[in-house]
């Protein structure tokens, strides 16, 4: 029934149906006062219903010739994608396989075993996003949502110090251009990381709902990092409810990414899965969740080196690249020369 799709309350829907208005075309030529009389409701409510009902009454698929509101041609999209900004990971190899870094307007999921460097990468991105554009950053702020309590502010300071040193090192080379605004201080980096501590899944959902408003007020936020998306959803949960809540959250995050042109990075844990007669490691939250993110990067050990692997991406080739976690943060693997494997 077409009226069932209108975003109005159930009681009003009921009234519409019982008064015989089952299809939207019947509503198209009505005046509000007429409808109000028929349904025995106030004129305001009637007006509300009519606002939601499409005006020309023709909602069938035959109207594809018209330009549909909100649609975009692939050509325009291509143009937009070329302008896409990316945030460097500080490891040239990972940047290479990612086409320059973590892309804005996308939701990227990063998962891996404990101790592989997920939080490290999250912190590194929160710092890097603040770099001026010529250094591979966006000159923006970061929102860091900590659900696990693993955010170590001392470590952020360490990474920020390294970052600021690197910047002043490059600045001395190209001194002439940026003489005016020499380097950011480590404290400035910390000032631009907005930290939220989330203690329950309800808070997590609430915060993601609220982010829309918050970012409207803080337009310079260019990355949202959730470390980790999983934590509060791993404690005894009804699976159907969990899938529903996670799905809703993923949609909202994608909307945020598109609306404010920012990068959303979700860190995920791994879990064991029983498949084909043996235990295997896989990212947590199950199969339906794995559809929720646009890009998925898996961090893993290969021998004695840490590798990042693009597990899923609509636009990038599957590839892996080594990286290292150093005192300065995420960097290129030292022993590596040319070891990027393309598959």
């Amino acid at each position: 029934m077409e009226v069932g799709r209108l975003p109005i309350s159930a009681a009003l829907k009921g009234k519409l149906v019982s008064a015989g208005y089952t299809s939207l075309s019947l509503l198209s030529s009505l005046s509000p006062s007429h409808l109000a009389r028929d349904l025995n409701i106030s004129e305001n409510e009637a007006l509300d219903i009519l606002k939601h009902a499409p005006h020309d009454g023709q909602v069938d698929t035959s109207s594809v010739h018209h330009i549909i509101n909100g649609a975009q041609t692939a050509w325009d999209m291509l143009h937009e994608e070329e302008l896409l900004t990316r945030i460097t990971t500080s490891s040239v190899d990972i940047d290479n396989i990612l086409g320059g870094g973590i892309s804005c307007r996308d939701v990227t999921e990063i998962g891996g075993v404990p101790g592989i460097g997920k939080t490290q990468l999250g912190i590194q991105l929160a710092v890097n996003v603040q770099l001026p554009i010529h250094c591979g950053g966006l000159g923006g702020k970061a929102i860091y949502i900590d659900t696990e309590g693993s955010f170590m502010v001392e470590r952020v300071l360490q990474i920020a110090e390294a970052c600021s040193n690197d910047m002043s090192a490059t600045n001395t080379v190209s001194q002439d251009v940026h003489a005016g605004k020499v380097g950011m201080q480590p404290r400035d980096f910390l000032e631009n990381i907005l930290y939220f501590r989330v203690c329950s899944y309800t808070e997590q959902i609430a915060l993601i709902n609220y982010l829309d408003k918050f970012i409207s007020e803080h337009r310079d936020v260019k990355i949202v990092i959730i470390d980790s998306i999983t934590f509060h959803f791993r404690q005894d949960f009804d699976m159907a409810l969990r899938t529903r809540l996670l799905g809703g959250m993923a949609l909202k995050l994608m909307k945020l990414a598109k609306k404010f042109c920012l990068a959303v990075v979700l860190l995920n844990q791994v879990t064991t899965k029983y498949a084909e007669g043996s235990f295997q490691l896989t990212l947590a939250l199950g199969d339906s969740w794995s559809h929720a993110c646009t890009n998925r990067i898996i961090l893993y050990w290969n021998g004695n080196e840490r590798y990042a692997y693009i597990d899923k991406s609509p636009s990038l080739r599957s590839a892996s690249a080594p990286y290292a976690v150093t005192a300065k943060g995420i960097r290129n693997s030292v022993s590596n020369c040319k070891r990027i494997k393309l598959m």
Partner: peptide, 26 residues
């Protein structure tokens, strides 16, 4: 039994109340 706009605005209101406060890393 409310419309979408109403429900959304109520949810936004509740969410804002429940969201934890933020602070800078500094």
């Amino acid at each position: 039994d409310m419309g979408l706009t109403e429900v959304t605005s109520v949810l936004v209101h509740i969410s804002e109340r429940v969201s934890p406060p933020h602070q800078t890393a500094r």
